[in-house]
């Protein structure tokens, strides 16, 4: 295979959720473009981004759905949970209300994804420590109680942003290795890269199975 952007073995599907204005789109932008978008417009419906990362020597393409936080888009965003391998749940450490809503986001996530979906809690805007409204300890405890992974990150400085996306991928990859996550299940949110480039489009139904093995 050639090297470069088209060489990867898996596709992982992520979803980013959380209240309006917590910085979901900025986190995505920081992760895909390594830039901070100062005045990021409100997301309408959904946004999308990709990046290829490496976990345990395997190249993995992340397809990330960034959802609108506004309540009126809830019906739209709910429909994107299905088949996500990773869910990044974001709150704003300077606004307690966004933290208080986490349990409702978590309920949605648990109901609409599958049991193997990795849920990662991100306390965003960690650069604004002076205006902090939610302590690290409190959020950490919430995460532990609910079995979530957790970091505080900053889309502005980039602190911990890589880590959050990468740790999630590592956990998903581990689930694949352990066999807890079935690659062929439609809702797993994990896919193999199409086997060989240039495979005829009109593949017979039997070869529609996208597993390369």
């Amino acid at each position: 295979m050639t090297s470069g952007p088209y060489n990867y073995s898996y596709i992982f599907k992520y979803i980013i959720i959380g209240d309006m204005g917590v910085g979901k789109s900025c986190l995505l932008h920081q992760f895909t473009d390594k830039k901070f978008m100062a005045d990021c417009p409100h997301t309408i419906g959904v946004e999308f981004g990709t990046r290829i990362i490496e976990v345990a020597g395997q190249k993995i393409k992340l397809q990330i759905w960034d959802t609108a936080g506004q309540e009126r888009f809830r019906a739209v965003t709910r429909s994107y949970y299905r088949g996500a391998a990773g869910a990044l749940m974001v709150y704003d450490i300077t606004r307690r209300s966004t933290y208080n809503h986490l349990s409702s986001w978590l309920t949605d996530t648990r109901n609409l994804t599958n049991p193997s979906t990795v849920i990662f809690l991100i306390g965003n805007k960690s650069d604004l420590d002076a205006q902090r409204d939610v302590t690290y300890e409190e959020a950490k405890q919430f995460a532990d109680e609910n079995g979530l992974m957790f970091v505080e990150a900053s889309a502005k400085t980039g602190q911990n942003v890589e880590e959050a996306f990468l740790e999630t991928a590592k956990k998903i990859y581990q689930s694949i290795q352990d066999g807890r996550l079935d690659l062929n299940a439609a809702e797993s949110g994990v896919q193999h890269k199409p086997a060989s480039p240039g495979r005829p489009l009109a593949a017979p139904p039997s070869s529609r199975d996208n597993c390369a093995c």
């Binding site: 419906g45 739209v76 429909s79 994107y80 299905r82 088949g83 529609r208 996208n210």
Partner: peptide, 17 residues
């Protein structure tokens, strides 16, 4: 701008992403 609909096509090959 639409909610993505539940369909009988479960195959991820057909996913909009």
């Amino acid at each position: 701008k639409m909610a993505c609909p539940p369909t009988e096509k479960q195959d991820q090959t057909y996913d909009f992403s």
